[in-house]
């Protein structure tokens, strides 16, 4: 094998290694993007966060205190679990 062919083969090999590393990085970044998309799909949407649009008192005593100040009725919702987490 001539020196020029040897060098050509060497640079071809090097460029292949470089391509392989780049492809691996691209695949890794594509995987990360796919995971991020899955994470996003699982999140509550704005429409599913309507619960947050209500001004909730911290407990019933606080609700009654505010009701007296503002002369408003109290809305009390009792439940099991954690309704604010969707685990109820």
């Amino acid at each position: 094998m001539s020196l020029s062919r040897l060098l050509a083969a060497f640079f071809l090999f090097i460029s292949f290694l470089g391509f392989a590393a780049t492809k691996s990085d691209v695949d890794d970044d594509k995987f990360v993007a796919w995971v991020q998309k899955r994470v996003q799909e699982a999140q509550p949407t704005k429409a599913e966060r309507k619960f947050d649009q209500v001004g909730w008192a911290k407990d019933v005593l606080d609700a009654e205190r505010l009701a007296k100040i503002h002369n408003r009725p109290v809305f009390l919702f009792t439940h099991d679990g954690r309704v604010n987490w969707g685990r109820c």
Binding site: E64, A67, K68, N71, R72, P73, V74, F75, L76, F77, T78, H79, D80, C88
Partner: peptide, 9 residues
């Protein structure tokens, strides 16, 4: 247990 109560002030 899972109920809505409406109360006066």
């Amino acid at each position: 247990d899972v109920h809505i109560y409406i109360l006066t002030p």
